[in-house]
């Protein structure tokens, strides 16, 4: 299973294996990693699984669709590498992915 590194805003790292086909959000929730709220359960409807994708991985995580872009744009912590973790599907190519979390989910 691909290994994903989640880094909390305070710097604490969590390395977990996430099954293929799951979302990066599910990987965090299933492993009780703090900092991902996922209020809508993965519908791209709440923007509370906001992460910053490590720039080295941006080419492999795909591009957000219009709905995701619009939800992310309301987060005051948004940056150019912001994504919603529920919209990133785990594939073999994402083995080693690193994502960081904002100060808080909103």
């Amino acid at each position: 299973m691909p290994l994903i590194t989640y880094i909390e805003h305070n710097g604490r790292e969590h390395k977990v294996e996430v099954p293929l086909g799951h979302s990066v959000m599910q990987g965090a929730v299933d492993n009780a990693i703090p900092g991902i709220d996922a209020d809508c359960g993965g519908e791209c409807a709440c923007a509370t699984c906001h992460v910053f994708v490590d720039p080295a991985w941006l080419g492999r995580t795909g591009t957000p669709d219009a709905q995701e872009k619009s939800m992310v744009s309301f987060a005051s912590t948004a940056q150019a590498n912001s994504r919603l973790a529920c919209q990133i599907q785990v594939t073999a190519a994402l083995d080693g992915l690193v994502v960081r979390m904002p100060e808080a989910q909103h």
Binding site: D37, A38, D39, E43, H106
Partner: peptide, 20 residues
Amino acid sequence: KRARQHLSFGFGIHRCVGNR
């Protein structure tokens, strides 16, 4: 379990600004 998953704040672009 998963108490945060509710509709009270709405979903999508009009989701409650002040929810937190």
